[in-house]
Design a protein around this nucleic acid. Structure first.
Lengths: 341, 341
DNA sequence: CGTTTTTGTGCAATCGATTGTACAAGATTT
DNA sequence: AAATCTTGTACAATCGATTGCACAAAAACG
């Protein structure tokens, strides 16, 4: 096991110059003579010198690291966002430290603390399901820590964010159902305190109103957006009058539950029942029938929020941006909503 | 914007003691009097003191950070492994820096360099598809950098690893097909230089041999394990005699391609054709018919490899472990392979 | 009571890179 | 030729935490 790392001091010693000269030579400082500069750079290359990031970070007060907080890494959407961020950040010389909250607010607070503690240059996050109060985030923003949100953003806090237009996505989806001829459309909604679910509900309402259909509160069923939630919603839907002929779900997994339950009850999709989901989870392409859903452009979202951070980094600390980007969602029409009339 | 961080010097000044005493007090050094210790700890609490990780890392020569290299973060399997690692590492006070190779060997080399450069305490990786030569990894191991592999391990290098028993998984899957009465089983294989695909092929061969069926090379079709690869394999299969009655695919996406192509050709699954995949991708549960596959225990794999690292960290540098853990895969039997004879 | 041991704390160096300032030698100006 | 400017480099402080060593004061010992 050899000495692990070459330092500027090693190079300095070998060339009989000072470490500061080496440091400057490596940065192409104009005051360093061409001869010295070249000698240093050559030797650095020869020894494959790599600056110690920790030392440099300590001195410069920035770590070239971005903290990322997501509810779950293994959720397709988040994994895709992270993938997008990674490509951008890595090529800009940044690292990502990733934490998951598992939807718990105390995990979220812990993650924030450790990231601040690690002196990350920014935190990019999507808030947990449990997070209703945002004080723990606001405190950091007030301290001058750069925070960016994606997807599940927090409107009360002055911070940059990237999300898709959930309202539009929902609106397009419901309008599509209406165009197909479905009339009695139930909305299986997510928790109302999360902005994205609220926006989806609003998009639903907008489309329904626009079609001149009266809005009935009992047609909005809030459930956990998992297959079981979908099944529960289906049960509740069975008791409604008139009988629903379509379900617009705020999540694909809930839509899947509806699909399964409909099959169990002998209802044919899409003929007896139209179903649309939200998120374009990979499985939606392969269900029988394949499922209409809304793509959230996860990869692009990651790229955009990472870009936003990078643009911001270069500015002075005082003008921390708070641009709010909204991506257009894409309605993916598949068989579960195609009435061939 | 307030001063961002409290340091031991701030605490020292306030208590009129030296920074070194503060440092020791915080570490519960026995030489520090109870009175001082308590005063320091109280003040630290009051100001919410958090040690500067970079400073401490620089001094101690370890960063409390683990580098993770995966082909793609957004692949379900890898996202799950990472999720498992995260839970273990975070609660042990470690961070994860994540890099993806996108299956490119030059990305892999770049990631290794930046991670070494970031002074991570270990690198946990799954090698890229393109990686055939392992010198760039061996060099690091020889330098004393701790490397652990998971899933796509590199047998030539002395390093700890966690993988599932791919051979067994394949064997169980093919034996299951045989038990169901399928005889002419084609194997859609992955790239042979990747250990896991080789192992799956061997498992297939073992089951076939055990059943007393002659092994025919043309029945092993190497393809890219995506739906299109599956379709291509299906085409090739159509030309074989006798006609295959089942496909064991080294990946779920290829199995999906076969399923789709079979449907296009009017073949009924599982009656006319049995299909099994590998990986237990989420969608396999929802295809029609649902797909038999092998679960790779991704989350557990992440937990185990992270644990292996943690156990190793505490030991002296000289006895770097190279335990090789093999997890038992789980055959998930679903409809695509259930001949109800 | 003098000597040894223990206890509690501070000093200063260290990790490696960065950067303001100083300073000498050479180049340019007047 | 003296004064000024430019060029090239080194010194030393800094970022914040850690740690070997020194040393004084207190305690324990013979």
């Amino acid at each position: 096991m050899k000495k692990q790392h070459v330092t500027i001091h090693d190079i300095a010693r070998e060339l009989n110059i000072s470490a500061s000269t080496v440091s400057r030579a490596l940065q192409n400082h104009p005051r360093i003579s061409k001869a010295t500069r070249e000698a240093v750079q050559q030797l650095a290359l020869k020894y494959n010198y790599q600056p110690n990031v920790m030392a440099s970070s300590l001195r410069k007060g920035r770590s070239k690291t971005v903290g990322v907080i997501v509810p779950r890494i293994n959720r397709n959407f988040f994994a895709n966002v992270i993938g997008g961020m990674e490509e951008v950040l890595t090529s800009a010389g940044y690292h990502m430290i990733i934490c998951q909250t598992l939807e718990k607010v105390n995990h979220e607070m812990f993650a924030l603390r450790t990231l601040v503690n690690a002196r990350v240059d920014a935190i990019i996050m999507s808030i947990s399901m449990e997070t209703k109060d945002h004080e723990h985030i606001r405190i950091l923003v007030d301290k001058g820590i750069r925070v960016f949100f994606f997807d599940r953003i927090c409107e009360e806090i002055r911070a940059g964010s990237v999300a898709i237009d959930d309202r539009l996505g929902a609106y397009l989806s419901v309008r599509h159902l209406l165009e197909q001829g479905y009339r009695n459309i139930v909305h299986v909604a997510g928790a109302d305190h999360i902005n994205i679910y609220r926006a989806r509900k609003e998009g639903y309402l907008e489309a329904i109103r626009e079609a001149g259909i009266p809005v009935r509160d009992s047609w909005i069923i809030e459930e956990s957006l998992v297959p079981e939630g979908g099944k529960a919603a289906f049960q509740k839907g069975m008791k409604l009058a008139p009988r629903p002929d379509a379900y617009f779900c705020a999540g694909d997994y809930a839509a899947l539950g509806i699909l399964q339950e409909a099959r169990n009850r002998g209802l044919k999709v899409p003929d007896d029942l139209g179903i649309t989901g939200f998120a374009n989870e990979p499985f939606t392409e392969f269900t029988e029938p394949s499922m209409t859903t809304v793509d959230q452009r996860a990869g692009e979202m990651g790229v955009r929020v990472a870009d936003m951070f990078l643009k911001d980094v270069d500015r002075s600390d005082e003008v921390h941006s708070m641009e709010r980007i909204m991506l257009k969602p894409e309605l993916i029409i598949r068989k579960s909503s195609m009435l061939n009339k």
